[in-house]
Nucleic acid binder design. Sequence first.
RNA 1: GCGGACGUAGCUCAGUCGGUAGAGCGCCAGGUUGUGGUCCUGGAUGUCGUGGGUUCGAUCCCCAUCGUUCGCCCCA
Length: 411
Amino acid sequence: MKALQPVRGTRDLIGDDARRHFRVVDTARRVTALYGASEWATPIFESTAVFARTLGETSDVVTKEMYTFEDRSGESITLRPEATAGICRAVISNGLTQTLPQKIFFQGPMFRYERPQKGRYRQFHQIDFEIIGAAEPLADAEAIACGWQILRELGIADGTVLNINTLGDKASRDAYRTALVDYLSRYEADLSADSRTRLARNPLRILDSKDSGDIALLAAAPVIYDHLNAESAAFYDGVKSALAQFGIPFVENPRIVRGFDYYNHTAFEFVTTELGAQGTVLGGGRYDGLMEQMGGPSIPGIGWGAGIERLAMLLADVPEAASMIAVIPMGEAQYPAALGILNRLRNAGIAAEMAYRGNVKRRMERANRIHARAAIIIGEDELARDAVAVKFLDDGTQREVAIGDLAALLR
RNA sequence: GCGGACGUAGCUCAGUCGGUAGAGCGCCAGGUUGUGGUCCUGGAUGUCGUGGGUUCGAUCCCCAUCGUUCGCCCCA
């Protein structure tokens, strides 16, 4: 029995789960197209270096969460833990650096070896939007606007809050890191154990610590905004004013740091309070140095990823669509007529099916179960007049219809 | 990776102070030989997550393991 269960942290998408999942994907595909995106798909695994080099040697994803293995030729392969690195690799591999900017919609499974929880899986799925080759703050605002519109169209925007921050350019970020380390080092003994480790490895990460002692210490800590150089400050102002012009509400949150090392300037998260510790539902930022870090030319980028499972859990009910027509012959004598009608309907673009067996009652039950909108009942008497009975299942009304009129009536 | 809770029918759950189990929903059949969704009647369901231990006897107690879940870490 154990072998027949899905592997820990993975799950099947069937029925309601599947409807929710594809509702998210379909909505994202449609909305990102409104912003000019083309859909891409890249391989599910890459050379390990693609992720190890870009996500940062100290990030948890790299140090302990990657699904990494050697293939038969001894090459180190990693199942992608996120989308951006693979997309950037594809830009370089395909020589797309001459046709920028590119706006990309992306969707598919990601893999991280973590302890599963609600809204966190080892194989999870993301929708992803990237704008590559645009250094203007308008691109940041547009990426955020796109994410916001998706959340709105999914009906979950009201429960989420957009948090934005800036990490500045490299010079600003380095200056801030120094100031922060200076400050926190004075209270090192009071920091939580986790944060003492972070102080050496990745001090900015202390900013989003959930330890109450850390939070108290951070109240008087230096703030990034005081360490931005003129260029970085102007960029940040540009993003904020474009967001205002798009009519997108946001709060500034100097604690938003984001996990991967490749981020600079804009960082943002849409957060909900309804998913416990997994509250970040859509997050991203700018990654101007990433392409160069991968060995490509210096090309700026901005993008976000969103967890489909987390979005799907927040959706209101997604009912099954009542779109089928059930074709019901009274008996085997009516099969030829029934198959002819099935064919006529399908060729006219109308979804229709006929059960493989069963009497009329059984077939009516099935029609109800598949949420058919109407049943075409084919009996000897009506057939003699080149007609059939059409019963609409929502209100139970029934009438006789000429076979030639079926497609027009049911379209 | 660390700490807590949980694991009984397809689903949601009850239960046994240790004597091999029950409800609702769903499913199947009939009431209705050419008509579903409502209603009535009847029926089938489970190695009580898995392995081991204690016991005359374990679904119940103990240990391990797998899975789920909550928090931490981290992140979508």
